[in-house]
């Protein structure tokens, strides 16, 4: 309880220069956001359009880092660190290894996309347009970051989400077990 009271006083003390803060926040955020959005979207396009799968993997790494930047723009620094470490550091690298292990029989003249290219294009970007249109009704919402977010996240993980936290540990064990038993060279059954 005392923790929150302290946070409250902290907030009151800052209320004086709230307007100035707000302007600074908005300015920095829009520059950050637009540059990140351009980075993410162009990397994502490269991932799905590039013929060379290894290059696509490298651009995937870029998209993941851009999303980490988005978390920074939303003031969740911890999530940004986790994104950079796990997504870019582990998952993207895992995928790159997978690509390198399976490229021996790569044939250059093979098409990289199937025949539904145009139907899929219309379908997916139609859905995107519909989604963006339906988001227009939302109110802009508040813009100030939460105080002591990391503390609250930790409390949530240990209290409200204690059971999911246990479940995810079991899930990681299952993934380890499954990946190991499949990737092992020896024949099992």
């Amino acid at each position: 309880m005392r923790f929150y009271a302290a946070a409250d006083e902290d907030h009151k003390a800052q209320k004086g220069n709230i307007y100035e803060n707000r302007i600074r926040l908005l300015m920095s955020n829009s520059v950050l956001f637009y540059s990140l959005a351009v980075l993410i979207i162009s990397c994502a396009f490269a991932v799905v359009f590039l013929r060379n799968i290894f290059h696509a993997g490298l651009f995937l790494l870029g998209a993941f880092l851009g999303v980490a930047g988005i978390y920074i723009a939303l003031f969740n620094y911890f999530l940004a660190a986790v994104q950079a470490l796990v997504y870019s550091g582990a998952i993207a690298v895992l995928i790159l290894f997978g690509i390198m292990l399976t490229q021996r029989h790569y044939r250059k003249e093979d098409p990289s996309h199937n025949a539904f290219k145009w139907i899929a294009f219309v379908l997916s970007f139609g859905i995107a347009g519909f989604l963006v249109d339906s988001f227009r009704s939302l109110k802009p919402g508040s813009i100030f970051p939460v105080k002591h977010l990391l503390y609250q996240m930790g409390m949530a993980l240990m209290q409200t989400y204690a059971i999911p936290f246990e479940v995810i540990s079991a899930l990681l064990l299952v993934a380890l077990l499954g990946a190991f038993s499949l990737a092992r060279e020896k024949e099992d059954l």
Binding site: F33, A37, I53, F116, L138
Partner: peptide, 30 residues
Amino acid sequence: MIGIFHYLALSAVLFCIGLYGVLTRRNGIA
């Protein structure tokens, strides 16, 4: 000014680019 709409629009576009890739890519890793 950047509001919720911008983030959601970004995510919607990202989602649909992913969807396009899922529907058209031939390589399983892709």
